[in-house]
Design a protein around this nucleic acid. Structure first.
Length: 470
RNA sequence: CGGGCUGUGGCGCAGCUUGGUCAGCGCACCUGCUUUGGGAGCAGGGGGUCGCCGGUUCAAAUCCGGCCAGCCCGACCA
């Protein structure tokens, strides 16, 4: 029976498709206050998986988790001029507490550089205290005029790392290490999203940073999404918050700092980088549910066989979920798992059971194959590997097909209509950048011609990657 | 903050021009039966101060005024 699609097709109305997925895959709802979101269990499970993978990499990079207060004295923000200028338009400020006017308003953290550095100043005395590598998982608030769930909300969840080092080189190297070993590795090997890395131009730089490095992903509509940033803060916060140390020769010096973060925006990136007209596509290494074991219907022994198989899959280290809701039609349930992007569906019905087999269905491609029950865990495992690789390869091929080389601003405009353009930064320059910005085309990052991260943002022969963005 | 639009069960909408069995449709929800290998069918059922306040009128979802809220488009951002 011919059915119309469950979702608005991407090429018909991409934003609508995105909205449909949020609802149908039960990812999130709008909160009661404009710009806020309620993250539903399945959406949160995706975030928890991201947290686990990122956290593990952060710790491997040597940083420790800590927690700093949600409320920051307004005066702290004011200490760094670029910082306050950058953030003041989007601050939420509390002026009352306990039924009284507060002597000094407190700001709901938009980011924690100021409050963390106020404590770094206490904790850092000697070169032996360096490097100081701290991370925190928290929510932050930046009042947004144009909210979109996961992509741009007034309150969002993130991780923010803050470090202090003895030398500029060491700080810069650490910021680059986070960019490569934590963020890029996570995004490419777990999220299966190929990212472009580089430096932000001065216009796009984080308020208070001397350099911002970033990772940019391409969404299915050809627009860019900044998936993460790593900043070199120089010594401005160290100066404002008086973070100094005594070196081995007895000289007092200011520390060099970094900060870096990824947020729940990545959930939006995941949706838009891989999703298709049938729903979400979740790469196996991320997937909270890697295999759904579906009892086709409640016939003799079917549910038991499914339960046993789900347990075996679990024992084999596969995140498996039993679907024994036989009161609901099979088609409905199959569609639900596709909407949720579960990589592999393992179906068992009476006919399968008779043959001593299960039917495996891949979320991408949708091929079905019959596998002997005893071989299912092994086969699922290899299928998951294939799917992980295929999702990445597809995303990479898609992205590369939408990047073109440009030598003039007009060529950039043309390319940006559907994807990204690469143009020598020397040919564009800040003036060309400003002109393109009028048409909502921005320089996403500056990178070397071979795509690698430059040593500095003013290295010669850099290429500007331009595009429309979220 | 400037321009365009919209407020009707959980969601999406019709009804408004031509006031009066218009409070209705689809989805979702509940009950029962039949179903279950790709979003099941049939029957029955629950649920709405028609954004808010006021006005006109015998009578307002419908006409008038005000207010509020939200959406979309222009200046910032993970």
């Amino acid at each position: 029976m011919a059915k119309q699609g469950v979702l608005t097709p991407q090429n018909e109305d991409f934003p609508r498709w995105y909205q449909d997925i949020l609802n149908k895959a039960e990812l999130a709802d709008n909160g009661p206050v404009r710009g806020t979101m309620v993250i539903r269990p399945y959406g949160y499970a995706l975030w928890e998986r991201m947290q686990a993978e990122v956290d593990q990499r952060i710790k491997a990079a040597g940083a420790d988790n800590a927690y700093f207060p949600l409320f920051i004295p307004e005066s702290y923000l004011n200490r760094e001029s670029d910082h306050v200028e950058g953030f003041s338009p989007e601050l939420a400020v509390v002026t009352q507490g306990g039924g009284r006017e507060l002597a000094e308003p407190v700001v709901v953290r938009p980011t924690s550089e100021t409050i963390i550095n106020a404590y770094f100043s206490k904790w850092v005395q000697s070169h032996r205290d360096l490097p100081l590598l701290i991370n925190q998982w928290a929510n932050v608030v930046r009042w947004e005029m144009r909210p979109r769930i996961f992509l741009r909300t007034t309150e969002f969840l993130w991780q923010e790392g803050h470090t202090a080092h003895a030398t500029r080189q060491e700080a810069r190297d650490y910021a680059a290490q986070i960019l490569h070993d934590v963020y890029r590795d996570f995004m490419e090997s777990v999220l299966a999203i190929p990212v472009l890395i580089g430096y932000k131009t001065e216009a796009e730089r984080f308020p208070g940073a001397i350099n911002s490095m970033c990772l940019e992903g391409m969404m299915r509509d050809g627009k860019a999404l900044q998936m993460g940033t790593s900043h070199e803060l120089g010594q401005s916060f160290a100066t404002m918050f008086d973070i100094t140390y005594l070196d081995g020769e007895g000289n007092q010096s200011h520390v060099w700092q970094t900060s870096w973060g990824v947020s729940s925006r990545m959930v939006g990136g995941l949706i838009m980088a891989h999703g298709d007209d049938r729903g979400l596509v979740v790469p196996p290494r991320l997937a909270p549910i890697q295999a759904a074991v579906v009892a086709v219907r409640d016939a003799e022994g079917v549910v038991d066989a499914c339960r046993r198989l789900a347990e075996e899959l679990g024992a084999a280290g596969i995140r498996a979920k039993l679907d024994d809701r036989t009161g609901t039609g099979f088609g409905r349930r199959a569609t639900d798992w596709e909407l949720k992007g579960v990589p592999v569906r393992v179906e068992i019905g009476p006919r399968d059971l008779e043959q001593g087999q299960a039917t495996l269905v891949s979320r991408i491609g949708g091929e079905k194959e019959a596998v002997r029950l005893s071989e299912v865990p092994t086969r699922v495992e290899s299928l998951l590997d294939d799917i992980q690789k295929r999702i990445y390869d597809d995303a990479l091929a898609w992205r590369d097909s939408l990047i073109s080389e440009a030598t003039t601003a007009d060529e950039v405009r043309e390319a940006a209509a559907t994807g990204f353009a690469r143009i020598p930064w020397a040919k564009l320059g800040p003036e060309g950048e400003a002109a393109l910005a009028e048409e909502a085309i921005t320089v996403r990052c500056l990178q070397r011609p071979d795509g690698s991260l430059p040593q500095d943002s003013d290295e010669s022969d850099l290429v500007a990657v331009c595009g429309r963005s979220y």
